[in-house]
Structures are given as structure tokens and as C-alpha cells.
Design a protein around this nucleic acid. Structure first.
Lengths: 343, 343
DNA sequence: TCCCGGCGTTTAATCGATTAAACACACACT
DNA sequence: AGTGTGTGTTTAATCGATTAAACGCCGGGA
């Protein structure tokens, strides 16, 4: 790659490498004459000098690289958003991202941390794809940041979605449209996901605020894919008319997609006969449904940015408690007033 | 990070750093006595030595890092699969991936290449998210590999999906089920995407082989999202019964999703009344449709692996012509025999 | 004339590894 | 004894930058 060294610039400009270094780094710009500075810059430009970051890193002990350890880039479309946020933030501050996918395996995680440590990255971000509580892996560098997960032991900065408030937002969307019989299509029980319970709390809170007594029959569980959503929604829609929900809050957009299918099968129109709110704002799904899905967005891009900025020390963070990131509603066409006879 | 240096190991073992280096790297394992080797290893283990890759890289001029330049990690769910493939291959050969997202902007691309060059990466992979012909950016290192795109000037190894053969596969799936009136829901005309024209070629080839005269009315265009697919499919389904297609080959799964909607609106069942084949095998969509979509998979993971292996010189590649990666069919439930009256 | 201080630049050590070449030592052979 | 052959280990140069400290030069003040 770069064959031109600083000494070549020095020779071309007729000065020493120390002078070149000071001019180009701007460190001693007040100690070096304008004439010399110009000569150095011209020479560098002329022979196409590009600094060797490896040599610089060895000396300065800073690599301007941030390690990003992630469990599964592969299997979720969210990963891209988090990566993009982290990457943009890194770039803005002149850093590069070194990415390692561990498939969620502990052994690979250990090797990744070793490799990144050996590579002298300036900091590490430890990312999971679903909001969860994790055991901090051994050897994680001081000042590392947890992304979309929080360390069981605490003590590290972390950022997660504010799932409770997201549950509030979603449910409120239905209450505001006039619905009173609102179901929560939840993830499977005991799945360990923190998100599920938190969103449920938000759901209950809004019902309470609206003076609605929660109906346990309207809290159902299903697999978090379209099939699970269709099955769960089917059970709800087959309830007797006076107990059937008019609004559905789905744990995620895939389940909402299934709920659409269940409604169509029963000849119910959305949003005229049934209102649906999703969660995730999953790209290529939410907007593509018919009608487009009103949903609550998981702020992956922003979380990625936040984590990277903390890792770069560009932003302060409380290591005691995770930072909760707001989940904004994205209004599309799947929520309307409840059907008249159900009002 | 690592404060323990090789000289510490040397001191602890009572030998010189040269000996330590040879023992740990395995370079001179035949020249150093077993006793000394054991001492060195024990000492290294005892004081927790981890080599400093920066120093090693400076000396060896190899960083064991591969730069991956991509236009949009963010906006496509495919990116993850390509990344995962590249990452797995890199890891298997002891390398790390340095990721840069350029948002497809030329200026950012230039900076990315400069940064990666300065960082002395051993090779670069230049990735695009949609099969296309691109101008090779200036400064791209020798031996770089193009991923999901091919350089207009040629001269670099490249890997792209075999879209023509994919078009053959998709169309053949419908022909094999007995369909004769098969439509192609294409991307917008003149969109510049290479894939669209190639798949069309494959489509025409299969029709010819089957002795079917292509009906120009059955080649329609639409935006490559669900809305575009619904509109285009709607036009086809509103044709008079004797000209209406019984099978739909859609440019991508999102359009297929729209085609489902158009069919449902018209009371047509899939696959009883209408067979649909998609393209991409888009995660979280294809399998989640009702019925699950039969589609042709874009081999992103494999392409990512291939590109990385070529970059690592673990696999030979012809820089004259791009490597075509097979697009396998994924059979689900959206293809059946044509309805009897249309036979 | 001599000394001093400030300015602009250079000298040289340093970061932590790799590795060619030198070296020390034991032993065998004439 | 002298030379040669291995064997095992060390010496020291090197990679390409950064940076503290030293240096040379010039002008001003006593």
C-alpha cells in the first residue's frame, strides 16, 4: 500500500521527519515557520504521502479503532440500523469500526475480545440484538459500552429501548382512537426477553389511566413470527362479539402481519373492523403491509450512535443505570375508531 | 489494555525476547530446546501475556485486517447476510473485518479508502447492495474484490448472483407446475439494475424451451415495493379471463407481497387460483406470508464468503469475468397447478 | 566582546514486536 | 591441538511514526 514514508517527505522538503510530523499533525504549528510549513505540505502533496496509522498507533497507543462485538449480524434486519448508527458516529469522530460477529457463542466471544484487545482498539461496544440482561464477558475492556442489552452485574454504561414507555405509546394510540377492548398479543411466556414484560407493564398502565379494567382473556401469547401472530389473533377474533377486541397491540410487526392474515380470513377489514398496532417498525414489512402498519419504532440507529459516542467519550453516561431510548410511534393506516356497534 | 510486554515474558523466563518470539510464533520451534520452550510458555501464561498486534503489524507489514467498504449497511436487510458471510470467512482465517459504510457517497468512499489504506489493511472488499455495474473508486488497493457489483473497467475479481439462471429457475418452477400463461412482474424500466434484464432473459429462455410464445402484455413493470407489486399485479389480474396469467414471477419478494394483496382483493386464492414465485428469499417476509412464498434465494451469505476468501487469497479468482453465484429455489406454498378451467 | 534568551529545527529515544546475522559452546574428526 | 559442524540462544537492526530534549543561530543588553 503506502510506500511513501515520512522520511521521504522530509527529504523532499529538506527538513527532518520531526518537522514533518509537527507540521502535518498540527502539533507545533506555532513553533515552525510559515515558510517551512508550506514547503512540507507541498512536498507531502507532491509525492503523495499518506501516514501509516500502524506506526502512529504503536507510538501514541491509540488506534482510532473501536471494536464492535455482536451476537448476530446475520439473522436480524435490525442489526444494520444499529451498525449504521455506530458507524456514522465513529466516522464523524475519525474512528473506524472493527466488527466481530460471535454467533452468540461464548467461546467466539472470548476470542473476539482477545483479538480486539491485541489489536489495541480504543474501546469496545458489546451489542445484542434483543433487549436482554447478559453476563458481562470476561476481559471486556474498561469503558466498554453495552448496546441493546444490560450487564447483569451492572457497572457499565448501557443503552436499551424504553420498552415500558413503548408499550404505553402503543396502547395509548388505540385508547386515543376510542378503543376500550384492547388486546396484547405477547411473545411466548417465559421467553426471557425483558421487552415483553416491560411492554405489558406499559399496556396495563394506560388501561388503568383510561379506567379500563384489563381483561385477562385479551392477553394472549404466541410465537413471535407471522404464524404465531395469526394463531393468537385468531383466538381473539373468535371470541364472542361482546368480548372480542377491537384493537390489537402486537409484540412485533411480524405478529401484526399474522394478525392481518387472521383478520382477512374472517372477512374483517383493517382498520374499519379492527385496529392493529405493531412494534419494531421493521423495514420492508411495516410500510409494505396493506394497509400500512401503525407501529412503535425501535430506535436502533439512535442506540447505535449513543453507544458509540459513549465509547468515544464524546458523551457522558451513568454506568449505574442503562440509558432508556425513546420509542416513537410511526402512524400509518392500521388504526381507526372502533366499529360503531362495538363503541 | 495489554500492559504485559514480550520483554516481561523474556525476563520471567530468563531468556531473550527473540527466543520468546520464536517460541510463541512457532517460527523456530525446531531450533529451540524443549526445555526452553516450556519455560517460555509457562512464563507467558503465568504473567498473562498477550501480543501487541500493532507492533507486530508494523514489523511484518501485515495487519490481519480486511477492509469492507459498503454503500448501505443500513437500508437493506441483505447486508447482514453478506457481512456475516464475509465475517465468518475472515474469522476462520484469523482475520478481522474493518467496516465502513459510505452511504454510497463518492467523497465518503474516498475517505474510507484512505483511512483503510493508512490502517494498512491487507485487502479490501468493495460491496454494493444491489447487483450493478460500478466505476471502480480511485485508490482501491490491488487485489481488492467486488461484492454484488462488477467494475465497469473490469480487471478485478467480482462476485454477483447469477440472475439470468435465477430467472430460469423461477420461471421453470411455474412451467413445471403446468402453467402456460406466466407473467413477469419486473422492476421499473431503465432502472439501471442489471438484475432485472438478466432475469427477464432467463424468463424468455424457459418460455422458449417450453414452446410458449411470450405475451408482451404479461411483462409489466412496477416499483419494487409492495405497492408497486400490487398495482402491477392488479393490472394483470384484471385482464380478460382467457389472457389473464395463472402464474406470476415477481422481481422480488416485496412485489410478491403486493401481488398477494392484489389477489386477495379480487378473491383469488394462492396457490389454487394463482401461483406466485418471488425473488430474494427475504428473511422475515417470504416465510411469513400466507401461504409462505416460493422464491429464488439471493445467495448473499455465500457471496460474502466468496469475496472474503478471494481477498484472503484462499481462493483463486478470474479478474476478467465476475463469478456467478447460483440462486437456488426455495419451495414453499405459493405454487400449485393452474386452475382447471385455465389449463 | 561576552553572555543570554528566544526561535526554529534536529537529534535521538521510544512504542513492541520480528528476524537476519552473530555468537558461544559442545563435540567429533583428523 | 586445530579445525569443522551443529545446536541453542542472543544481539541488534528494523518497521514508521511521535516527541522530549538538545542544539545552533541570531539579536539585544551589559
Amino acid at each position: 500500500m503506502a510506500r511513501v514514508r515520512m522520511s521521504d517527505v522530509a527529504a523532499a522538503a529538506g527538513v527532518s521527519t520531526a518537522t514533518v510530523s509537527m507540521v502535518l499533525s498540527g502539533a507545533g504549528s506555532d513553533r515552525i515557520s510559515a515558510l517551512t510549513q508550506a514547503k512540507v505540505r507541498e512536498a507531502a502533496e507532491a509525492i503523495g504521502y499518506a501516514p501509516n496509522s500502524v506506526a502512529r498507533s504503536l507510538r501514541t497507543r491509540r488506534t482510532r479503532m473501536i471494536g464492535l462485538i455482536s451476537d448476530t449480524i446475520a439473522t436480524t434486519p435490525f442489526a444494520g440500523r444499529m451498525l449504521a448508527g455506530a458507524n456514522d458516529a465513529a466516522r464523524e469522530h475519525g474512528h473506524l469500526v472493527v466488527l466481530v460477529d460471535t454467533d452468540g457463542e461464548r467461546a467466539q466471544e472470548r476470542r473476539a475480545i482477545e483479538a480486539l484487545t491485541g489489536q489495541q482498539v480504543d474501546a469496545m461496544v458489546y451489542a445484542r440484538m434483543w433487549h436482554q440482561v447478559v453476563d458481562a464477558p470476561a476481559g471486556l475492556a474498561e469503558g466498554s459500552v453495552f448496546l441493546d442489552c444490560r450487564p447483569a452485574q451492572g457497572g457499565w454504561p448501557a443503552v436499551v429501548p424504553d420498552d415500558r414507555e413503548g408499550g404505553v405509546t402503543a396502547t395509548r394510540e388505540l385508547v386515543a382512537a376510542g378503543h376500550r377492548r384492547i388486546a396484547y398479543l405477547d411473545a411466548p411466556q417465559g421467553s426471557g426477553a425483558v421487552a415483553s414484560a416491560l411492554r405489558h407493564q406499559g399496556y396495563l398502565q394506560v388501561l388503568a389511566e383510561a379506567g379500563i379494567t384489563p381483561d385477562p382473556a385479551l392477553h394472549v401469547h404466541g410465537e413471535t413470527d407471522a404464524g404465531g401472530g395469526r394463531a393468537a389473533a385468531g383466538r381473539l377474533l373468535d371470541l364472542p362479539a361482546d368480548r372480542r377486541p377491537t384493537g390489537l397491540f402486537c409484540f412485533n410487526d411480524r405478529m401484526a402481519m399474522g394478525a392481518y392474515a387472521a383478520a382477512h380470513r374472517r372477512g374483517l377489514r383493517i382498520p374499519e373492523d379492527l385496529s392493529v398496532v405493531g412494534f419494531d417498525d421493521q423495514q420492508l414489512i411495516a410500510a409494505d403491509l396493506d394497509p400500512p402498519l401503525t407501529t412503535v419504532a425501535l430506535p436502533h440507529y439512535e442506540m447505535g450512535r449513543w453507544a458509540m459516542e459513549v465509547a468515544l467519550r464524546e458523551r457522558a453516561a451513568d454506568p449505574a443505570a442503562p440509558h432508556l431510548m425513546e420509542c416513537p410511534v410511526v402512524r400509518r393506516g392500521s388504526v381507526g375508531p372502533p366499529p360503531p356497534q362495538a363503541g
